[in-house]
Design a protein around this nucleic acid. Structure first.
Lengths: 327, 327
DNA sequence: CTGAAAGCGCTTACAG
DNA sequence: CTGAAAGCGCTTACAG
């Protein structure tokens, strides 16, 4: 520490303050010290990283989260790392309390799922050489933060092409909030497939909804009430698709006879839905495992081959899609 | 440490040597120091129990697990405790590696869900004053181990009475493995309701199945193929019920017109099933929270008011139950 | 916002 | 085998 202080041209107490995230250090000083700490891969003595991976979720609500957890658990188990799970009750950025506790635990690494850390939080981790990997980033991924995702654009494209191939033209897209890259990519994939097929996209048929059953029910109902309703709806996730199922049921429409529906994720219940759902599979377990492996590689001082890993999606055709009635 | 040294009439370096097991301390001195250390419950600084709750699951597969996790997270968050999650890949007893790692972590407490620890594991925790609470024990609950569950017997009774009240007589029960107390209690509740109504239980209509969709599908199919099939099926959990939905669909039967189905758990997808499922609600989030609160109380040295806590189940009537066709 | 000084809870090297 | 002294790697309280 004395060495760091000397190199940064400050005193030991100042380095101490930076390390512990205490307030009352000028920004410039803090940055200078942080730079030296980073260069030197500084580690407090006796304070090797704990055999812990921190796993933060914005929310723990759906099977989606559970599959990711399983993937992380799997790799963590192989490396004898404990998994500390935190849920943020829907918030996308962890609070101060979380940061403090994580820094105190000195984990081997942090995986943030569907969330983002502030620049300050990221630098606090970086200073302590705690690697960070984001799974399905919600913000503009900072070019430096390693992240894992799925080939959402291709998935959107495959789903839409499947519907086009069945003969559908009035294909609606229920998107998730488009500021989230994963949702935006699915929507873009849909548009790309429509364009490629020369089918114009009717703006009335594209809706931004929430990623829950309720969103699918509400916006699905509106779509079905249109004067010229869609014959097929591609949704941004399986929960939304389930909402569309319910909207169809209430409208007295049968799936797939009167309406085709495609989901996204392939959570386990989709195969037991009535009817079994055609959906785009995301390999969530593998995505969790990939993120954990990246953490381990980074903690080991290795350089990542790629900062952004995208695992392949695959279209799973089941019984919720069929040619349109008129065709 | 200075205090210990003073009380033992030695210097700090000597205490240090004893603590670190260094050679070169006279036996008598060592014993005197050790005695004082023990009396004072000396903890090297940084060796208090970690602010961690260990949460072990036999498996992380269903929303069932996720709700319990949420409850534990909630209480842990309030008390600034981290939750370390372990999945045992289906095994009901954790292995040696887990035990070693947990002992090294010195958690505030351990919650074992749908699983059991060996007597040795329990005593290793007890010796270190690490409290243990079991949620839905799978074995004969050792009378001393605190546990949390739901009123499964009453739930089974309520579900069955609901079907009887609708006019059903040929009511089947798809049970889970009956060596597990929660499953056994649901089955007993079913029998009790049937007996109370004076309706004899046809042994052909009681099956022990697995707690998964596949089990419900397989055994539900068999039930429906009986010469005199049931008009209603009460299942041991929602996944099984979903399997029965599929069995009915394949048999060309409509729910609830041709067959009534009651689930157990009230996982979120049940309200979006086709048709929305009548089921017995277990307050899983609260059960997780209750287990965490027991851990905190025990770690705090409090005595538990009761060693076994059972939270109330409630029947949620939706659209999968109706009077039998013949009635 | 920063550093010199003092303090903390140890451990180490050395003298006896 | 033991302790006084020095040292280590910090953190804290205070003065400027």
């Amino acid at each position: 520490m004395a060495e760091i202080a000397h190199l940064a041209g400050v005193s030991a107490p100042t380095v101490s303050r930076v390390l512990n995230g205490h307030a009352g250090v000028a920004l410039a000083t803090r940055q200078r010290v942080e730079a030296v700490l980073r260069e030197h891969g500084y580690r407090r003595r006796g304070n090797e990283p704990a055999a812990i991976i921190e796993l933060v979720f914005h929310a723990l609500e759906s099977l989606w989260a559970l599959e990711i957890i399983q993937g992380v658990e799997q790799v963590a188990r192989e490396h004898e790392l404990a998994v500390v799970l935190t849920e943020m009750q829907g918030r996308l950025t962890p609070g101060r309390a979380w940061t403090e506790q994580v820094l105190a635990r000195r984990p081997t690494g942090v995986i943030a799922v569907f969330s983002e850390l502030t620049v300050q939080q990221q630098s606090q981790l970086a200073v302590r050489s705690i690697p960070l990997v984001v799974l399905d980033p919600t913000g503009e991924p900072l070019h430096q933060t390693p992240s894992v995702g799925a080939t959402n654009w291709s998935g959107g494209m495959a789903a839409t092409r499947h519907l086009l191939d069945l003969g559908h033209h009035r294909i609606a897209m229920l998107s998730g909030p488009t500021q989230w890259p994963c949702c935006r990519a699915r929507l873009d994939g849909y548009r790309a497939a429509m364009d490629a097929a020369g089918v114009p996209v009717d703006p009335d048929l594209v809706r931004v909804s929430t990623l829950y059953v309720e969103g699918g029910l509400r916006d699905g109902t509106e779509l079905l009430r249109l004067p010229d309703p869609p014959t097929a709806i591609f949704t941004a996730n399986d929960l939304q698709a389930l909402g569309v199922y319910e909207a169809a049921r209430r409208a007295g429409l049968r799936i797939p006879d009167d309406l085709s529906v495609v989901g996204f994720d392939d959570l386990s219940f989709t195969q037991w839905a009535g009817p079994p759902m055609t959906t785009v599979r995301q390999p969530l377990v593998q995505m969790g495992a990939a993120a954990a492996r990246m953490i381990i590689a980074l903690a080991d001082g290795q350089r990542l081959e790629q900062h952004r890993v995208e695992l392949a999606t695959t279209l799973v055709v089941r019984e919720s899609t069929a040619p349109p009635r008129q065709a």
